[in-house]
């Protein structure tokens, strides 16, 4: 059995300038912070990032607070293009767009989730009623089914996916507590290389297998050392 356990730097050894990555999390909650830190340490630039939002900016809770989640990548200027549903919380994106240093593609949140799932699960796309007649429909195929109009949302693919588990076994089966699930069960498996950073690592069989909610066959590498969120 291939060992999947890596250090953060080992796990992202193949990550290069200009690649596309998926980062799980909702305003930072459920994002793998140690993988964000590793990307900054490695100094990779010009990334296209697929995520729900821009994470949290520097100083969200207090003036000494670091950015969280994708906010770290934005703060470091490592993002050329962000594909997200909501970027209002992190002012660096708006500034980047105005300055012409960053591109932003907005996707309705439910469609973003389905586009990632479609890629993970081998679908050519899904038809959604969301966004019909809006700016979100621009450039997308529209299909009428039984008298109702739908947008065709195509899959989103990435070179790497970065996810965060509360508990992961050494095969990669994992679970996320409470509202940290968000994109973790969708992105793990949707990229060429899928990395899970976990708070707690256990041996396969150590816990009731039914505890886990996402299959280890969708996980390529596991990194230990995620810390609980600090306010």
């Amino acid at each position: 059995m291939t060992m999947k356990i890596r250090t953060a730097q080992e796990a992202i050894a193949g990550l290069k300038d200009g690649m596309t990555i998926m980062v799980a999390g909702f305003l930072g909650t459920g994002s793998p912070e140690i993988l964000m830190d590793a990307i900054l340490e490695k100094g990779v630039k010009h990334l296209t990032v697929i995520g729900n939002d821009g994470g949290l900016p520097r100083g969200w809770y207090n003036e000494y607070d670091t950015p969280r989640g994708i906010g770290k990548l934005l703060d470091a200027g490592a993002v050329d293009h962000i594909i997200a549903s909501h970027v209002g919380v992190n002012p660096l994106i708006g500034k980047g767009i105005i300055a012409g240093t960053m591109e932003c593609t907005l996707v309705p949140q439910g469609s973003l989730a389905e586009k990632i799932r479609a890629d993970n699960f081998g679908l050519g796309g899904v038809l959604t009623p969301t966004g019909v007649g809006t700016l979100a429909a621009e450039g997308k195929m529209q299909i009428e089914i039984d008298g109702k109009m739908y947008l065709l949302e195509k899959p989103l693919h990435a070179d790497y996916s970065f996810c965060r588990a509360s508990i992961c076994d050494d095969f990669g089966n994992f679970l996320c507590n409470k509202a940290t699930k968000n994109y973790n069960y969708l992105m793990a498996g949707a990229a060429d290389h899928n990395i899970v950073a976990t708070e707690r690592l256990v041996k396969a069989g150590e816990l009731d297998p039914d505890t886990f909610q996402h299959s280890g066959v969708l996980v390529d590498m596991i990194v230990e050392g995620e810390k609980p969120w600090q306010i």
């Binding site: 939002d53 997200a84 549903s85 970027v87 966004g131 809006t134 979100a136």
Partner: peptide, 12 residues
């Protein structure tokens, strides 16, 4: 320029 977030899905 904030993004639609979940608003488009919710109202549909």
């Amino acid at each position: 320029y904030a993004g639609m977030g979940g608003a488009m899905d919710l109202v549909v």
